[in-house]
C-alpha cells in the first residue's frame, strides 16, 4: 500500500476548543479542518477546501479563518471556537437569529456564516448592510439568496445591542 500522509507520525497539538482544553493528534502537514473533524467536531464543514467558500470557518483567537488553509500544528495554544460553542454570547445570538429568520436551508454553509458574522459583530456592534455583505463575502450559500442570512445577522446585532443597554 502506498504511504499516505496519515501514516506519518502524528504529534499532539494542545489547544482550547469551545472553552475546553483539548489535545488533537495531527500529522505534520495536516489541515486544522481534518484534525478537528477527526476529533468529532463535525459542525465544521468542508466544501471547496481552497479558502473560497467559507464552510470550514472557525474563530481562531477570536478571528474568523478558513480551517482548510491552516496547518493543525500552527494552532498550538490557540483558542478555537466553532458554531456549536455554548456560552459564547455572540455565536449564541447569531445561532438563534438564523433560526428565527430562517436564514438557513440545506444548512451546510450555516456554521461558516455564523462564525464570519461573529467576527464582524465582535468588532462592530451596529454594522450597516454593506458592511455585513462585505464581512460575508467569503461565504457561499447556494440556497438562500443571502437575504434571510443578512436579516439574521441584523437581528442578532440588534439583540446584542439590547442586551448591552439595560
Amino acid at each position: 500500500m502506498a504511504a499516505s500522509e496519515a501514516d506519518l507520525g502524528r504529534s499532539p497539538v494542545a489547544l482550547t476548543i469551545n472553552g475546553r482544553r483539548t489535545v488533537l493528534d495531527a500529522a505534520p502537514g495536516e489541515r486544522l479542518l481534518d484534525a478537528l473533524r477527526r476529533a468529532g467536531w463535525l459542525d465544521i464543514k468542508e466544501s471547496c477546501g481552497e479558502g473560497e467558500c467559507g464552510s470550514c470557518t472557525v474563530l481562531l483567537d477570536g478571528r474568523a479563518v478558513c480551517s482548510c488553509l491552516l496547518l493543525a500544528q500552527s494552532a498550538e495554544g490557540a483558542d478555537v471556537v466553532t458554531a456549536a460553542a455554548t456560552g459564547h454570547r455572540v455565536v449564541g445570538a447569531l445561532r438563534r437569529a438564523f433560526v428565527e429568520e430562517m436564514g438557513t436551508q440545506c444548512g451546510f454553509c450555516t456554521p461558516g456564516m455564523v462564525l464570519a458574522a461573529a467576527d464582524l459583530l465582535t468588532g462592530d456592534g451596529d454594522p450597516d448592510e454593506a458592511k455585513i455583505r462585505r464581512a460575508l463575502a467569503g461565504n457561499l450559500c447556494r440556497c438562500t439568496g443571502y437575504h434571510r442570512i443578512l436579516r439574521a445577522v441584523q437581528r442578532a446585532a440588534a439583540e446584542l445591542r439590547e442586551e448591552v443597554q439595560p
Partner: peptide, 9 residues
C-alpha cells in the same frame, strides 16, 4: 484582498 477569513490569516 480576498475575504475576511483570508485577510485574518
Amino acid at each position: 484582498l480576498a475575504s475576511q477569513q483570508i485577510r485574518n490569516l
